[in-house]
Simulated assay, not measured.
Amino acid sequence: METCKVLGFGHVGVQVQDLERSRRFYGELLGFEVVWEYVHTDYHMLVMGKNGCVVELMEGEGKLPDGALNHLSILVDDVEKGKAELEARGVSFETDILLDPDLYPRGEKFAMFRGPDNERPQLEQIL
C-alpha cells in the first residue's frame, strides 16, 4: 500500500470456549493486561496485551467457521485509503468498512478480506 500507512499488527482475534479460563491463562501465566472489554448481546470480547502483543479473545454465539484463529488485524492510519488501494489491486473484501463505536475508547473502523489460503486479514483503524 502506498498512500495508506501500515502501522503494525493490530491484534490477533481468537475464538475461545471459556473466556474466564483464557483471561487467567493470558493474564496470570503470560502477564497480559486487559486493554478493553466489551459485552455484546451475541458475544463477549476481551482485548489483552503486553509489550505491543495484543490478542482479542471472543466467546459467544457469533462464532465463525474459521477455527480458533479468527482473524489477523493489520493496523493502518486510514482504513478507507487502505481498502481502496487493495481493491484497486484486485482484493475482494468480505465486508464494507464497518464502524464499531464501542471498541476502544473512541471506536474503530475495519474491513475484512481473505488471503490466498483463505486466512482472514482485517484492516483496522483505531479512532
Rank of each mutant, 00 (worst) to 15 (best):
D77P: 07
I97L: 12
G62L: 11
F110W: 08
A88K: 15
A84K: 15
K81S: 09
S22N: 04
E94S: 12
G31N: 03
G52L: 14
R114V: 03
P65G: 13
R24G: 10
D102M: 08
V55I: 14
K83F: 01
I74A: 08
V35Y: 04
N118R: 13
K83L: 10
E59Q: 14
D78Q: 09
L69P: 01
G62V: 11
E28V: 03
Y38P: 00
E108D: 04
V16F: 01
N70Y: 06
P101H: 04
V14L: 15
E87G: 01
G62H: 08
V54I: 15
D42G: 11
D102Y: 11
A88Y: 00
M112D: 08
E28S: 12
V76H: 02
P101I: 10
G62T: 08
E56L: 15
C53P: 00
G67A: 05
L30T: 04
W36G: 00
G107R: 15
D42K: 13
K81Y: 02
K50F: 06
R106T: 12
F113R: 12
I97Q: 10
M48V: 14
L98K: 09
P65I: 07
M48K: 10
E94K: 11
V47N: 12
A88H: 01
D77N: 15
F32K: 09
Y43R: 07
G115Y: 03
L98P: 06
D100Y: 15
V16G: 07
T95V: 13
I74W: 02
V14E: 04
